[in-house]
């Protein structure tokens, strides 16, 4: 099947729009999250996303309308836990993640029976995106992209050196909340297509790949956006022609690119 034939399908066009926007948002934020050692927050949020998604489906809400505020609240909570060094941040995030997951599974099995639904929540589905999802996703991802671009410089400053920024009078906690907020929104809009278990890899992989080779912040950000977009399109195409789950295919393509970049990075650094 050729690439143009794919566009005849409505659901594929929707998946393309949503997936591309999510890939961009995830890649941009991923750079900050990986460098700031916040990867765990992204991972924790995706589990919370599963619980939120299950509950909102069980209650009959449009999935994104209820999940968005829940995941945003959870993001602030996880950030707070991460900031507070007296609690073991990692374990606290793990607890919240597994409890959300368990709650989601119970709610789903009680209401609709565990099977197809849970599978699609966890691992995503290109068929799952409704028209209302599409509209919300487009709006939210544009908000994420604009906020990221407007606050690109202070986000860099806070990521590189929180204490310097704080001593210099920058409102660090506000920007950390912005990071948490943007991450939450990205997880929410990405989880229907990528699946709640796989969305965090969309955040982490492109950043890690581009850091193997690129060495300025701006080039890492731009290249990881490009890598993310290309990997998504390739993954979606492969999933369609080979009839594979889309989210998982995108992750595998990302992994392949990571391996290539890793090896390339090793070689270029040795010769440099």
């Amino acid at each position: 099947m050729s690439f143009s034939e794919i566009f005849q399908y409505d659901f594929i066009v929707r998946a393309l729009i949503v997936g591309s926007l999510v890939s961009l948002c995830a890649a941009l934020l991923g750079v900050t999250l990986v460098l700031k050692r916040f990867s765990m927050i992204g991972d924790g949020l995706s589990h919370v996303g599963f619980g939120a998604l299950s509950i909102s489906m069980a209650l009959g809400f449009a999935p994104l309308i209820l999940s968005t505020p829940i995941v945003i609240l959870a993001a602030f909570l996880l950030l707070h836990i991460n900031n507070n060094s007296k609690i073991k941040g990692d374990s606290a995030i793990a607890i919240i993640a597994s409890v959300s997951l368990a709650a989601g599974v119970i709610v789903t099995s009680v209401t609709s029976g565990i099977s197809v639904d849970v599978f699609s929540y966890m691992f995503g589905s290109v068929l799952a995106i409704s028209d209302s999802d599409l509209i919300i996703t487009v709006i939210l991802s544009i908000v994420v992209l604009i906020l990221y671009l407007i606050f690109y410089n202070p986000l860099f400053g806070v990521t590189f050196d929180e204490n310097f920024s704080k001593a210099g009078g920058v409102n660090v906690s506000l920007y950390k909340m912005l990071i948490a907020f943007l991450t939450a929104v990205t997880v929410v809009i990405g989880m229907r297509i990528m699946g709640t278990m796989l969305i965090s890899s969309l955040i982490i992989f492109p950043a890690l790949s581009s850091m193997r080779i690129f060495s300025s912040f701006r080039s890492v950000v731009i290249s990881s956006a490009a890598i993310s977009l290309i990997c998504f399109l390739a993954g979606l195409y492969l999933s369609f022609i080979w009839n594979l789950p889309a989210g998982a295919s995108v992750v595998m393509v990302n992994f392949a690119v990571f391996c290539i970049m890793w090896v390339t990075g090793k070689i270029t650094r040795r010769t440099a």
Binding site: L35, N153, D161, F164, G168, S215, F217, S219
Partner: peptide, 26 residues
């Protein structure tokens, strides 16, 4: 402020100019 270096910074992909320019954020 010139803090003690953190592990995050040692391996941070940023150009020298980007780092120095970020001082102006203050």
């Amino acid at each position: 402020y010139m803090p003690q270096q953190t592990d995050i910074q040692r391996d941070f992909p940023a150009s020298v100019y980007e780092v120095v320019l970020s001082g102006c954020l203050c």
